[in-house]
Amino acid sequence: MKEYNDELDCSGMNCPLPILKTKMKIDTMKDGEVLRVISTDPGACNDMPAWASRVGHVLVESCEEGDKFVFYIRKGE
């Protein structure tokens, strides 16, 4: 199990909600902390990395767990 500081479950949500919720959550965290995001929206697979790199966060890892997509995002400075 990867280490993370906080977690957000976006199961059942469709875009733009997963990114919108992730942004709101990560805004409350400190630089360098890692957020674990769970999504069931296949659209998140391309959008989450694209959003993270555009904003300056780092997508540390992403994987599929059953029908869920899991992203580990480190907050950028």
């Binding site: 990114i19 919108l20 694209a50 959003w51």
Partner: peptide, 8 residues
């Protein structure tokens, strides 16, 4: 312009 730019 990706929608997440409108979020950020």
């Amino acid at each position: 312009i990706p929608y997440f730019d409108f979020i950020e």
